[in-house]
């Protein structure tokens, strides 16, 4: 077994310590920035759905500003966004490189996309259900918690799965900016030093990660869907 791996992936075996820590770094980057982004995206997504005219927390101006800001952020390619954020990242986290430097740009990069996913998920909840909760005398906050967020779980799980897959992709891109992780490993060894097996191994691990995310997402969606 080890012989086959050593034959096909000689450089990966040679640099296995770094390879394994790259996997770990990618997992941490995706996990931490995903968790932070989940919280901020739920807040933004709820605001996007509830602030339009006639909504639960109607504030049309706020809605337009928010929507516009999200569109602007989404239209900047991630690699340029991350580069442009370097001064801010350094000011906030004290580092622009490595894991610490990677998480803030990833959060900024994925949150607009994630917030739109949350918005789309919450839009699937029929307005009848909101009206019903309102007729029970619930406060807006309770309607958000008990109807939007609770009844939206299957759709939110789908949106979260899609987002996490995109986030794994972004984490690899940020590798080219010195963030560490599998993207960094693939570029430094596989691309710049022509060790193609390093690139291939990174791709295989990333594929496994995406597969795992999709698998967990499907389990959650299937367990919560009642239509």
């Amino acid at each position: 077994m080890f012989d086959i791996v050593a034959r096909w992936f000689p450089h990966v075996v040679e640099y296995r310590g770094e390879f394994i820590s790259s996997i770990w770094e990618t997992a941490v980057m995706v996990g931490v920035s995903g968790a932070i982004s989940l919280v901020s995206s739920l807040i933004l997504g709820v605001l996007l759905v509830t602030t339009p005219k006639g909504g639960l927390l109607a504030a049309p101006l706020c809605n337009r500003v928010l929507s516009y800001a999200i569109n602007v952020l989404r239209s900047v390619p991630f690699i340029i966004l991350a580069a442009a954020l370097v001064p801010l990242t350094r000011a906030l986290t004290g580092a622009a490189l490595g894991l610490r430097g990677a998480i803030f740009p990833l959060v900024v990069g994925i949150t607009p996309f994630f917030a739109r996913q949350v918005e789309a998920a919450l839009m699937t909840i029929p307005s009848n259900l909101i009206e019903t909760a309102y007729s029970m005398g619930f406060t807006p906050w309770k309607i958000i918690r008990r109807v939007y967020l609770r009844e939206g779980i299957p759709a939110l799980a789908k949106g979260t799965t899609i987002t996490m897959v995109s986030l794994i992709g972004l984490s690899a891109i940020s590798g080219s900016l010195g963030s560490g992780g599998l993207g960094d490993f693939a570029i430094r060894y596989g691309y710049q030093r022509f060790m193609f097996d390093a690139t291939l191994a990174s791709v295989i691990v990333l594929l496994c990660m995406v597969g795992f995310v999709e698998f967990v997402g499907k389990i959650v969606v299937d367990a919560t869907t009642r239509q």
């Binding site: 029929p126 009848n128 259900l129 009206e131 019903t132 309102y134 007729s135 029970m136 005398g137 619930f138 406060t139 109807v147 609770r150 009844e151 779980i153 299957p154 919560t224 009642r226 239509q227």
Partner: peptide, 19 residues
């Protein structure tokens, strides 16, 4: 809201929470 808790309402589409 307090008044609404003393008024029950049913709808054509039942509007039960599916989850």
């Amino acid at each position: 809201r307090k008044l609404r808790t003393t008024i029950g309402m049913i709808f054509q589409s039942c509007n039960l929470m599916p989850s």
